[in-house]
Simulated assay, not measured.
Amino acid sequence: MTAAIEIYTRPGCGYCSAAKSLLTRKKAAFTEYDVAKDSSYRQQMFDRAGAGSTFPQIFIGETHVGGCDELYALDREGKLDGLLAGEKAVP
Rank of each mutant, 00 (worst) to 15 (best):
L84V: 00
A73E: 15
S40A: 05
F55A: 14
S53L: 00
K88I: 03
M45H: 10
E77D: 04
L71H: 00
V35I: 12
Q44E: 14
F30D: 15
D69Q: 14
D75H: 13
R76Q: 11
G50V: 00
I58L: 01
D34M: 08
E77A: 09
C68Y: 09
Y41D: 07
P56G: 12
T24C: 09
Q57S: 03
V90K: 12
G82W: 03
I60E: 05
A4T: 12
R48E: 08
R25V: 01
Q57M: 03
E32A: 12
K88S: 14
A49T: 08
I7L: 02
S21M: 03
G50T: 02
E32K: 08
I58G: 07
S39H: 06
T2R: 07
D34K: 02
E6A: 12
A85I: 02
S39C: 06
K37I: 04
C68P: 15
F30S: 08
A18M: 06
S21N: 13
Y72C: 13
A51G: 07
C13H: 00
G50H: 01
V90S: 11
G52E: 03
Y8Q: 02
I5G: 13
K79S: 05
A3C: 05
E70A: 15
C16V: 08
L74W: 04
D34T: 01
F46D: 11
R76V: 09
A19Y: 00
S21T: 08
Y8N: 09
I58A: 02
R10A: 04
M45S: 04
M1W: 05
A4C: 11
R25W: 02
K26P: 01
A29T: 05
E62A: 05
D38R: 05
A89R: 10
K20A: 09
T24V: 01
V35M: 00
A89Y: 15
Q44T: 08
F30T: 06
G50F: 00
E6G: 05
I5C: 15
K20R: 03
S39P: 15
L80Q: 06
D47I: 06
Y41W: 04
K26V: 02
D34F: 01
E62N: 02
K26F: 04
A73T: 14
G78M: 09
F59N: 05
D75Q: 08
Q57H: 13
S40K: 15
C16G: 12
D81M: 02
Q44Y: 08
V65E: 05
Q43S: 12
D38H: 01
P11K: 13
S40C: 07
E6P: 01
R10C: 06
P11D: 11
T31Q: 10
R25F: 06
A19W: 00
L22D: 08
G52C: 03
T31W: 10
G52H: 07
A19Q: 04
G67T: 12
T31M: 11
A36V: 03
M1P: 10
V90T: 07
A89W: 04
D47E: 10
G52Y: 02
A28S: 05
G78N: 12
V90A: 07
A49K: 04
D69H: 14
R42K: 14
T63V: 06
A29P: 10
A28G: 05
A73I: 03
V35F: 00
G12A: 02
G82N: 14
